[in-house]
């Protein structure tokens, strides 16, 4: 990403000249208080909002400006996990995950092979035929993660994936994400969870009022003030 800027049509400027270069296989935390621009940045990557200025390159492809009909194909390169899970309520766990493969026209044989593999990766094999409302929050989030990675996207975006979960469940989600990251998927995770950021010791990008204020390898949630 180069010199990304976003100005909403109502004149609100959400992001000023952000410059980020995220490498393949990196794990990046995006931190900052509410309204700092984290969500806007994610929306830009997902092509949910247009970019006012600057250049956005994803997987060696310039996606700054793409026609609407190309957007679905870009979204297939970016898996996404939300705070509120966003599962299809009238589909089973298996169908929710298989769905992501069906829309890209994967072979049924491939779907039957891949979905169980992914479900066992997030330890949900036993819940395959449950519906989302029969699952706990942590389980739902794992389904959502399974869905987001089933097509092997190069990038996974997680928008406060642990926001609705208790610390133990959150830790479990983080283990799943780490596992995915170790398999080579780039992960960008927006979060408020201080403890998680501090314990993981990964790259941290901090936003404040639409400006990037910090980009630190193996950083913490906030600049540590030495013990007095």
């Amino acid at each position: 990403m180069t010199n990304i800027a976003k100005e909403y049509r109502n004149g609100v400027i959400a992001l000023y000249d952000i410059n980020i270069d995220i490498h393949k296989g990196e794990f990046v935390f995006l931190v900052g208080s509410s309204g700092a621009g984290k969500s806007t940045l994610i929306k830009l990557i997902l092509k949910e909002e247009g970019i006012t200025r600057g250049k956005l390159i994803l997987d060696d492809m310039d996606i700054t400006r793409v026609p609407n009909r190309r957007i679905p194909y870009i979204r297939r390169k970016v898996g996404v996990v939300f705070q509120d899970f966003r599962l299809l309520p009238n589909k089973t766990v298996y169908e929710n995950v298989a769905f992501a493969m069906e829309i890209i026209g994967a072979r049924p044989r491939e779907i039957r092979r891949r979905v169980p593999t992914i479900l066992s990766m997030v330890s949900l094999s036993k819940k395959a035929s449950s519906f989302p409302d029969q699952l706990s929050g942590g389980e739902q989030q794992r389904v959502s993660i399974a869905r987001s990675i089933v097509n092997n996207p190069p990038v996974l975006i997680a928008d406060e994936p642990t926001g609705n979960l208790d610390p133990d469940t959150a830790a479990e989600i983080m283990r799943v994400l780490m596992d995915i990251n170790n398999r080579g998927t780039t992960i960008i995770m927006a979060t408020h969870a201080k403890e998680i950021v501090n314990t993981m010791k990964k790259r941290v990008i901090a936003l404040e009022n639409g400006r990037m204020v910090r980009d630190e390898e193996k950083g913490g949630y906030s600049i540590e003030i030495p013990n007095l």
């Binding site: 997902l46 009909r69 679905p72 194909y73 870009i74 979204r75 297939r76 996404v80 966003r86 599962l87 299809l88 309520p89 009238n90 769905f99 992501a100 829309i103 890209i104 869905r147 097509n151």
Partner: peptide, 16 residues
């Protein structure tokens, strides 16, 4: 509506 929204995020085309 939610369902449609989710379908879009997973990369479903409008036709789909």
């Amino acid at each position: 509506r939610r369902e449609i929204n989710i379908m879009k995020y997973v990369g479903a085309t409008n036709g789909y």
